[in-house]
């Protein structure tokens, strides 16, 4: 990019230059790109969500996931996410020995220290973290690290579909 485009007028030597005068606003090809890059992650629906304590039994956690038809639940301590239990955890850590560990605490099989997204981060960052970490669910936290929601696969589909509206009906 040429200097002529970046500066309305080239500063003379020694003249104070406002750094923001160099700022080129980001341009986006379409509203989907803008939303992904600039909207808060809460633009993706993140509620309702289910949080349980680490002492809940695996049996009860699975029963609650089935009853509420959810694919993941967050394990919290003082509202801070300390783990997440997803259908994938059930498949890989529980299914083959369910009868042996059904009454153990969920902390034994949860994914501890889950990667979280801050509610002020962008949807693009949320999708990027999920892609890099191969997650399908991610807790949403506020600036104090307290759980405020959960972003999941189906909710992201709904977010994307919202941007395509009637086009997808063709």
């Amino acid at each position: 990019m040429s200097d002529d485009r970046r500066h309305r007028r080239k500063p003379t030597p020694g003249e104070f230059e406002d750094p923001l005068s160099n700022y080129d606003p980001v341009s986006y090809e379409d509203d989907l790109e803008r939303s992904l890059a600039e909207d808060p992650a809460t633009e993706i629906e993140s509620r309702p969500f289910v949080a349980i304590s680490a002492n809940t039994s695996i049996r009860d956690a699975i029963a609650e996931m089935d009853e509420k038809n959810i694919a993941a639940m967050v394990i919290t301590q003082n509202d801070i996410p300390v783990g997440i239990l997803s259908e994938r955890d059930i498949l890989t850590r529980v299914a083959h020995r369910f009868s042996d560990i059904a009454d153990e605490p969920v902390s034994r099989v949860m994914t501890a220290d889950p990667v979280c997204i801050c509610e002020t981060d962008s949807p693009a960052r949320a999708l990027n973290l999920m892609s890099v970490g191969s997650f399908r669910h991610m807790p949403v936290v506020d600036v104090d690290g307290k759980l405020t929601g959960v972003i999941g696969a189906r909710r992201i589909t709904a977010y994307l579909q919202k941007h395509f509206g009637e086009i997808t009906r063709v």
């Binding site: 790109e33 992904l36 890059a37 693009a124 999708l127 990027n128 999920m130 892609s131 890099v132 191969s134 399908r136 696969a153 189906r154 992201i156 589909t157 994307l160």
Partner: peptide, 14 residues
């Protein structure tokens, strides 16, 4: 599934 779509969108913003 959705994972494929997430990776596709994520690659765009890589």
């Amino acid at each position: 599934g959705l994972r494929g779509v997430i990776e596709y969108v994520s690659d765009y913003f890589a």
